[in-house]
Design a protein around this nucleic acid. Structure first.
Lengths: 162, 162
DNA sequence: GTTATTGCAAACATTTTGCAATTAA
DNA sequence: TTAATTGCAAAATGTTTGCAATAAC
């Protein structure tokens, strides 16, 4: 189980291959990201990037991150403050199953089934894991049928959790 | 496997129990959330809430959602556009293991181990699942040792993924 | 020499704060 | 009555867009 991440050289290669120019800004950001020891937000990337490219601006950081993400070189993680959808909660710790079409959310318990998986990760990495967030995205039964129709009415799939 | 969510009556009860007042605004928001068929963002909650409480304002929606979340009545989901942490990506689809203390992210492959779990959910719910996001949060080995110390230096745990 | 790319300013979107008026208990 | 709660205006964040200047190819 080797987690190989992209190196600075990969950024250059991939960018060129996709037909984009390698500029001082992009070099700086690639350098920052490929050498970062943990995730960085745009502001931190700007700050660090200016050590390589003093004229770097925040707007360019955003644009470059979008580009790198589209090229698959960088991935977003969901850092904690931020997002903004709400559902009434269930009584147990639950995960969310979100219908991509009608936005319905089904919450389901899953900690038990996930437990062996998490335990294995703990053993492999040495981390102690005390929280997890799992979101599944897909199509609910009704939306699978109606994918071609124009309506976006949500349907109740909670009944499927018999 | 029954996913029982809080009803409107629960909102009233829990609020009172925790020593908060039941106001027209909170009634409206509780009503909206407990009867919603899918997740709602603050704007949608405002719009729907005004049908029950015309004077309702967006600020109150935010404050009420925070309160309800703290009381465990409502849970946030991570809707897709938004968040904002970046790491260099791995070549396979990976999940993120985030150290809560030093913010280090270890990305690990896990689709295989998760596959039977997802298949079971598909069978139980009728959903077709085409994407998933799993984030594990905890402490990396170095931070477990150093929890009492003042330093927040990240350490490389990738080596643990032998 | 072209054309992609940049940085700035300004717009936009989302969420939070200060404060006086209101209202539930 | 009186302290919690509200709504407004305004501030604070985070992210995107328009556009002329610049730099990569």
């Amino acid at each position: 189980m080797k987690t190989q991440t992209y190196t600075y050289a990969d950024f250059t290669t991939q960018l060129r291959k996709a037909g984009f120019r390698m500029t001082a800004s992009r070099k700086a950001i690639a350098r920052v990201l490929s050498s970062a020891e943990h995730w960085l937000n745009p502001d931190e990337i700007l700050l660090r990037g200016r050590e390589y490219c003093p004229s770097l601006g925040l707007v360019t950081v955003y644009r470059t991150l979008t580009l790198f993400t589209e090229l698959g070189l960088v991935s977003r993680i969901h850092a904690h403050p931020g997002c903004h959808g709400y559902v009434t909660a269930t009584l147990e710790h639950g995960h969310h199953l979100v219908c991509r079409r009608c936005q319905q959310v089904v919450e389901f318990p899953g900690s038990d089934a996930l437990a062996p998986f998490i335990k294995a990760i703990e053993e492999k990495t040495g981390f102690t894991i005390d929280d997890h967030m799992l979101e599944l995205h897909g199509l609910c039964p009704a939306c699978q049928v109606q994918t071609q129709s124009g309506t976006h009415e949500p349907h109740n799939a909670k009944e499927f959790l018999s």
